[in-house]
Design a binder for these strands. Sequence first.
DNA 1: TGCGTATGCAATTTATATATTACATTCTCT
DNA 2: AGAGAATGTAATATATAAATTGCATACGCA
Lengths: 66, 66
Amino acid sequence: MKNHVRSARIAANITQTDLARKTGITRQTIGLIEKGTYNPSLQLCIALAKELGKTLDELFWEVEEK
Amino acid sequence: MKNHVRSARIAANITQTDLARKTGITRQTIGLIEKGTYNPSLQLCIALAKELGKTLDELFWEVEEK
DNA sequence: TGCGTATGCAATTTATATATTACATTCTCT
DNA sequence: AGAGAATGTAATATATAAATTGCATACGCA
């Protein structure tokens, strides 16, 4: 479940805590998603993408799995 | 959680049962996703997209929610 | 008419995403 | 050095995705 959430978040210059608050989830969940050990729900992926100004493909598509 | 899974599946000319088998889940889950009452996992969305020859965006992005 | 295939749907169970709480580390800034 | 902010991570609890089983309907076809 690798992705580009971390780099997109850093590029957007917001903290995990901010992104979590804006997307309605907890900081811990953001942390786990960025770490790549999680399989988030589609709804959450969409919320993250919109908040980060990206599309699903840009954040989650074709990220080589380790 | 509306999406374009059903039309893509029909365009690909395969059954729910086939798509389920190929993506490693059950027919019932496919049915619920197509119905739009489900919030599938990212991993499953990716498997569906690859099997249907689409990207995440094509299947799940910006589908007006009812 | 009867059989096989595709789909809808409901009840129950199981697996896992996400929340909650809490503590630790790292880094920056004064 | 000390304080605060950002992040890592772990244990437990809760919500829900997904599996399993089972039955119903509709359709094409022999």
